[in-house]
Design a protein around this nucleic acid. Sequence first.
DNA 1: ATCCTGACCCAAG
DNA 2: GCTTGGGCCAGGA
Length: 115
Amino acid sequence: MQPPSVRTPKPEQMQTAIRRAILLIPPGKIATYGQIAEAAGYPRYHRQVAQVLRKCGDELPWHRVLGSGGQIKCKRDGGFEQRLRLKMEGVRFRGSRVDVAQHQYVFRRKGLRPD
DNA sequence: ATCCTGACCCAAG
DNA sequence: GCTTGGGCCAGGA
């Protein structure tokens, strides 16, 4: 059974909530796809976060979005640029991963309202 | 309606 | 570290 509150989301509203959640991440901090989806009020919709980034990542701090464990999920040049951008903001790496313990951004509340 | 794909996640081996 | 397989959801052909 699932709570009816998070089912059958309106795509437009969900996309807005996801965008707003991503915009909350300050420079030098990071969040994962799953955390963003949850913060936006749509747990389990992490794939939709990726969809939003692919579509309009140019308007968002896309480089602050990582896979679980602080992994960069972009391929090739995208991943390279993401790493550079993060380093430019002072984010430190441990091997190929971001030091999550130090840079994790914790959303204050989950279920951001559309306003 | 079905099938495939994707900037995903997680547990196993 | 790696690969597999199952689960998840939306969008496009």
